[in-house]
Design a protein around this nucleic acid. Structure first.
Lengths: 148, 148
DNA sequence: CCATTATCATTCAGAGTCTGAACGATTCAG
DNA sequence: CTGAATCGTTCAGACTCTGAATGATAATGG
């Protein structure tokens, strides 16, 4: 119980390091996909669309943890790029059903390539064993948090 | 070379997972330290101050990767809380030298405690071995990136 | 010693991102 | 058929952060 003596150790925390490294990774990734006229949330949205069937903007907002009004502007941009398709649901004409287009899939593929390239930079100082251990741990955390 | 066939795999990327998990960790941590009237950057600033000797706002801005004008407002708030001390450097009276006060150290300790509590939630699904492997890998990435 | 130039902290306007409250259109419930 | 609920959209505004002034101080070079 010598908490008094022990250093605060905030930086030694997994949460703190996930935060700082995640912020850095996000910045770097954002720089890379800027070339495709995409922001981080655009990539997140395309990823969400790629993982499930066609989905309404409302549901997508919930899945992304974001306000529906934000989905509108993100979808506007992706639609202008030709990356997604907006179709009125015939069963419920209030709903706009979003689908990734072929061009959207290509774009997402380029994003993934950029991320893989960044991965190599990030993990350059790790041994193969450490990399797979990291991937495994992050995978479990991701699944547990219900993230894509 | 069957890249064509392979799924894009953005979500399987270390960078992507660091980004999403880091964002989540940041949100959760921000909620916890809200009780102390602190934002994420306040904790980052106090951490930076706790790791080195007294430092000017200019240098701190560089270390934090942030505009000097932002350091002003962050320091204003921390000073109002009594967490830091602003002293004019007698050798160079343009400089404001920042120091963590005793109360600041206590506050930072509470932040660290909050982070440790969050750590337990986050890593609940991991075995002890996986946790230490994760800590080791994150430690290496952190050091390589020159982060605290 | 003085004048110029550079550096520091600060202020302020504004860009960028995101939310929440409207609103019209559509659907659902009774 | 009427009222309530839901969808997408718009819009004002909160929040965070940056970059360009500004004034004070220091360094530099005649």
């Amino acid at each position: 119980m010598d908490d008094v003596k022990r250093a605060t150790g905030l930086p030694a925390t997994v949460v703190f390091r996930l935060g700082t490294l995640g912020s850095l990774a996000g910045e770097r990734f954002a720089e890379k996909i800027e070339a495709y006229d995409l922001k981080l949330k655009h990539a997140g949205m395309m990823t969400a669309l790629s993982l499930g069937p066609a989905i309404s903007q409302q549901d997508l907002a919930a899945k992304m943890g974001v306000a529906p009004s934000l989905v509108v502007s993100l979808a506007d941009h992706l639609e202008a790029l030709g990356a997604i398709q907006r179709v009125r649901d015939p069963q419920d004409r209030r709903r706009q059903v979003l689908t990734l287009t072929e061009h959207g899939r290509e774009l997402l593929g380029k994003c993934a390539a950029a991320a893989r390239a960044l991965d190599e930079e990030f993990t350059a100082a790790l041994t193969p064993d450490q990399i797979s251990a990291l991937q495994q741990a992050l995978g479990i955390l991701t699944a547990q948090a219900g993230l894509p």
